[in-house]
Amino acid sequence: MRLSQLAGRRLVAGIPILWLIVLFMIPFLIVFRISFSEVRLAIPPYTPLITWHHGSPSLEVHWSAYKFLFTDSLYISSYLYSLKVAAVSTLCCLLLGYPMAYAIARAQPSVRSVLLMLIILPFWTSFLLRVYAWIGLLKNNGVINNVLLYLHVIKEPLALLQTDFAVYIGIVYSYLPFMILPLYANLEKHDPALLEAAADLGARPFTAFRRVTLPQSLPGILAGSLLVFIPAVGEYVIPTLLGRTDQIMIGRVLSDEFFENRDWPVASAVAILILLILVIPIMLFQRAQRRELEGAS
């Protein structure tokens, strides 16, 4: 009985661990290993890690891929651009999402479930389709320009597509639910008596929000921000479809290196560097989560 219980427990924990090892850890190690090789015209298209000279093995580690990333300004500017786009989008999501999450958390329970449903509703349509729909809205003879022209607000169509603005719209639109849901989960737990207590002690509504609601919702803000920021940094589809052609994001660089240049080592190095940049916020996220769990107990 106890043994089978133990076996069952191991199985439950084991399946996700196995999943992570096979589908995450091993591919990561392969990418990591490729990033330390050089391109060659062969299959596979990179130098082996271990070569044999007169029967004895020698380790061949090349840093050239990483060096290359810092010599060509394309990479650095793509990284910085990606971080900027992700940061601005995250901020916009936060500014839009916080009031929405707050309103949902404060709504009547019956209305609340409907509002939550509306937040999740876009997921029922394909992500790609929704981004394509934005092309239809933003392009020169798209819906927005046509309406503005018809209303004589503008004389000639605005260049909306293939701008930073279009990328922000696309990312904010696509990732907003990921900001709202953790914020809602946090705000919904707040005790309304705390705001009454703050008012009772002489705090005006804004002060009460700043000193009571906001500090307590920090874990939610952090969770939502990371859930938006992390995928936004590596976003490929939205900037490719809606964004500028003169300045690309790092996800596009990565894909181009693999599929256009067939330079696997540089592509791998790009990927590893993205990971390093993102590991820091992920660690922050986990720390925040742990703190919230401790606070709740």
């Binding site: 005790d191 008596a193 705390l194 009454e196 207590a197 703050a198 008012a199 009772d200 002690l201 002489g202 705090a203 005006r204 009571v212 500090p215 307590q216 606070g295």
Partner: peptide, 20 residues
């Protein structure tokens, strides 16, 4: 007169202490 301007203070049943 709103609550934050009244010369009145309240001790809540749940105490409503600020947890943070």
């Amino acid at each position: 007169i709103p609550p934050y301007e009244r010369p009145v203070n309240m001790m809540f049943q749940s105490y409503a202490l600020f947890p943070h």
